[in-house]
């Protein structure tokens, strides 16, 4: 109860309530999350259940067209799956991969950034050169390398079975340097502060000082990049899926849906690509807008009064 009261009086909530963009973004984001995660309950069809899908229903246009079917409000894709339901399931996959990948990135990046910033010397040089090398490739290229390796190592069948964890791993590994560099930079600033000296004088060990004292002081940039990285990870996943290296057609994410429909866009079935595309843009946009707001809140130097 006490925590709740504190939260109600906080600057965090205050600035949120005064920022209409943040409120709208948050509402939309929450709506999308709820809809996608309750998809098995509220979706009109189950796109994963092949027994209910009929190829006869394929490429039915949205309901407001003459040939539309009331059963399929946004039409169907080339396999005869209901677009609305498939998008709901697909968004769930996208969000899970986005958040999972960011959690992995953040874990790797924060630990590596802390170690290199605090220990310095050779450890620092090793990890930062590694990050430099990785940053000199584009993220997507690294992801394509890794997923190609995975695909040949496990075979395409196994790959599609474990596509979600593998994609989390791929995108997580591809983007850790962002975190590592941010955290390292803050650690370099923090470790010179006297409270760190004081902690040493009190007799704490290095590990305790790093994780318990320095880490919480470096977290605000981590939160900010996390929101932006979620959007990035969703995009990366979509891009990989679009290139055919991501989610299999049987369990499509938004990206693989876009890819799937892309082949039909010139034959007139625009809805298979456009609807997931719009949804993806909205999802990424609201997450980015929330990130912008969070950056303003957590960085008092940008405080506009």
């Amino acid at each position: 109860m006490d925590k709740w009261k504190k939260f109600k009086e906080s600057y965090f909530l205050y600035s949120f309530l005064r920022d209409p963009v943040a409120i709208v973004s948050f509402i939309i984001f929450l709506f999308l999350v709820i809809v996608s995660f309750s998809a098995p309950l509220i979706a009109p069809h189950d796109p994963y259940d092949t027994s209910t899908i009929s190829i006869m229903d394929s490429e039915i246009p949205p309901v407001w067209y003459g040939e539309g079917d009331d059963n399929f409000i946004l039409g169907t894709d080339s396999q005869g799956r209901d677009m609305l339901s498939t998008m709901m399931y697909g968004m769930r996959v996208s969000i899970i991969i986005g958040i999972g990948a960011v959690a992995l990135q953040a874990f790797l990046g924060v630990v590596i950034g802390l170690l290199s910033g605090y220990i310095g010397g050779r450890v620092d040089a090793f990890f930062m050169r590694l990050a430099d090398i990785q940053l000199s490739f584009s993220t997507l290229m690294v992801a394509i390398f890794i997923s190609a390796i995975f695909q040949t190592a496990f075979g395409v069948g196994k790959y599609s079975e474990y596509a979600v964890p593998i994609l989390v791993l791929i995108i997580g590994i591809a983007e850790w340097p962002q975190y590592a560099r941010t955290v390292r930079a803050s650690v370099l600033g923090e470790k010179e502060k006297e409270y760190v000296e004081a902690a040493k004088v009190i007799g704490f060990g290095s590990r305790w000082i790093m994780f318990r004292h320095i880490l919480p002081n470096t977290l605000s940039p981590v939160f900010v990049i996390s929101t932006i990285q979620v959007a990035n990870a969703v995009m990366s996943e979509a891009a990989l899926s679009f290139l055919g290296l991501g989610m299999p057609v049987t369990k499509p994410s938004l990206g693989s849906l876009i890819n799937l429909g892309f082949e039909y866009i010139f034959s007139g079935s625009w809805w298979i690509t456009i609807f997931p595309g719009i949804l993806l843009i909205i999802l990424v946009l609201v997450v980015n807008l929330l990130g912008d707001w969070l950056r303003d809140v957590l960085n008092p130097k940008l405080y506009k009064g």
Binding site: A198, I202, F204
Partner: peptide
């Protein structure tokens, strides 16, 4: 040494603004 620091010999610094960790 770690056992002695803070326990048997403790230290006070110049700037009290900086010696306390701001997040706890």
């Amino acid at each position: 040494l770690r056992h002695i620091r803070g326990n048997r010999i403790s230290m006070i610094f110049q700037d009290p603004m900086m010696t306390l960790n701001p997040v706890f």
